[in-house]
Design a protein around this nucleic acid. Structure first.
Lengths: 151, 151
DNA sequence: CTTGAAAAGAACTGCCT
DNA sequence: AGGCAGTTCTTTTCAAG
């Protein structure tokens, strides 16, 4: 954990609105010169606070009309290691995120598919055959909202 | 839905690995000149396939040690509109994402907090008091994995 | 911290195959 | 479509106050 001042927080907030903004623009909004802003952003990157810049795609325009969240409970915990399960899931291209959670289910997977029948194929041939996969719960995504930020 | 050729797909894949790459670098990896690469990227942006560039922060380094997924079931559906609920949730800064889903729960919320007691505060004072909020299920995030891509 | 400026590189344009 | 060459703009780095 790193300590940031208010200016750092303002810079992060600005970047969260639009990660493509230049140091010049951000600095103008905060009354800071371009080099000073740039140094702060660079320091935050170096410190690992700003981790990456991820591309947001329009899934529908790419032909993926269906997004499903799967809660997966492992059967035979211990007999099959979590690492085995994670490695096998990672190899499925339709799986977008893998989250190891504590609760009713062990893993939460975000899966995209072209349509419902395509999803069924993924579910039956890829997910259900995973090593150790037990109970599975599915939730279809209706609409997603944006992400604001705390701080 | 837009039709893309293999080159477009390769470019998107490259950008998904690192969205900050220049057209020059991407083009080199694919045996394409800088202007040609740039024109394709631009076309994809214009078409809305490449929607945005989102900043990925290190939550722990910012002091948010706890991430919880909440499944929220609405009580009194119809009496309180989904819009009311969504507007109220959007005002909570600790809520990172709001997903409207079809399944056992109506919404899935991703909530960050400094620690468990901070999360309890958010849950009791912000989430439980939401208009229409009924049953709530919580899952604590243990570890998150990266996102590869299909196509 | 600031301003100013130089060097590097990325984005964009027009023309030609 | 793609490539080449050139211009413009931004990023990045440095010097000096």
């Amino acid at each position: 954990m790193i300590d940031l001042d208010d200016m750092d927080r303002d810079i992060i907030r600005a970047l969260m609105r639009d990660a493509t903004q230049s140091a010049t623009v951000i600095g103008q909004g905060l009354g800071l010169s371009q080099p000073a802003t740039w140094r702060r952003i660079n320091r935050l990157k170096q410190a690992g606070v700003l981790r990456a810049n991820r591309l947001v795609l329009d899934k529908e325009k790419l032909g993926f009309g269906v997004t499903v969240f799967l809660g997966v409970k492992l059967a035979m915990k211990g007999r099959v290691s979590l690492e085995d399960f994670e490695r096998a899931v990672s190899a499925i291209p339709e799986v977008q995120t893998i989250e190891h959670i504590l609760g009713l289910y062990d893993y939460r997977l975000k899966v995209v598919a072209r349509d419902i029948s395509d999803f069924e194929r993924v579910l039956r041939r890829r997910i259900m055959t995973l090593p150790g996969a037990g109970e599975v719960e599915a939730n279809v995504l209706l609409s997603e909202e944006r992400l604001t930020g705390p701080l």
